[in-house]
Design a protein around this nucleic acid. Sequence first.
DNA 1: TCTGGGGTCCTAGGACCC
DNA 2: TCTGGGGTCCTAGGACCC
Length: 370
Amino acid sequence: MIAHVDMDAFYVSIEMLRHPELRGKPVVVAHDGPRGVVTTASYAAREFGVHSALPLVVARRRCPQLNVLPVDMQLYRRGSRRVMETLAEFSDSVEVVGLDEAYVDLSASPVPQSRAREIKRKVTAATRLACSIGLGPNKLMAKIASDLDKPDGLFVLTEGNWLETVGARPASLLPGVGPRTFERLRAIGVETVADLAAAEPGSLEHSFGPRHGPALRERGNGVGARSLTTERVRKSESRETTFPHDVSDRALMAETVERLGAAVCESLADHGRSGRTVTLKIRLTPWRTHTRSRTLPSPTRDPEAVIGVARELLERFDPEDPVRLLGVGVAGLVGDAPDDVPETHDAPARDAPAREGAPAGASGARQLSL
DNA sequence: TCTGGGGTCCTAGGACCC
DNA sequence: TCTGGGGTCCTAGGACCC
């Protein structure tokens, strides 16, 4: 069995540890500003229809008494490290998916359900945070199971109860079925997971192609990967920024591209990596996103080189309409010479504040210190 | 209601090579 | 002289995920 461990309202729950007066209240973590969106919403906020990815202006309209906290990634990264260290005690095979979720292979355990309960206890003891766990014979079922009993839940999906449990749910419940795919599915009469599971293979292939079509049908039947990917090497790095208000000033665009390019190179240097393809991303008003890229003969993380290319791409694109977002990225990453050294996982940020009295690597059931 | 930031993977066309 | 097919790289855009 595979477990999918999903922290409940992770960023907000961590913030509650240092703002106990906000417990039970509608709280979101968000980049504030005229174009901010909700990153995470507390369960009290969700009762007002406030959820992640919702524009902040809409969130405040739905919930005038909403508490908006700024994003503190350093803090959430520390919390995440504590969670992942705890999970590593339960299996050699752990796949970290984001700061707040991971798969844990419990195949070695004869009693995966009690192991899962043990994981929940240990995670909470180590962090004072709750999580939900899904169990399943593969990643897909485990992932969906973790959503079925939130928060602080535990749910098991198997081939035996798959269709009776989720068959009537919309197909968009499945990972990989986003808004676009769901619309196209509905256009051919596929509304639910059960519809997808029983769909005519020919009509799926006709609509989605020889690869995507059959893959969708398999997902509808709960078929998914049974082994985890424990090591992942980053393939690109980027920085982007949305302006509070649209920009037409070329000098400001150029300055922004410089700042973003420098930030990307600084991060690449921290990770000991370089890349060959420089990409400029431009989002115009109204909401059209474009990219322009150039591949260099050899990998670089030299700010002058990266910024130089990015500025040329900007000049070449020459946006006519106001610009709402600019981004600079470097892809095709390789590690430092001589050999392609894999990046160090989650290297500490260079200006991470020193932790008081907490020796690095100390483990055990200490609580998340703030 | 009007949409952040950081990623991954896929597709499709054109260039180029064998 | 005119022609096929496969493979790889590059570029641009799109869907999706956390």
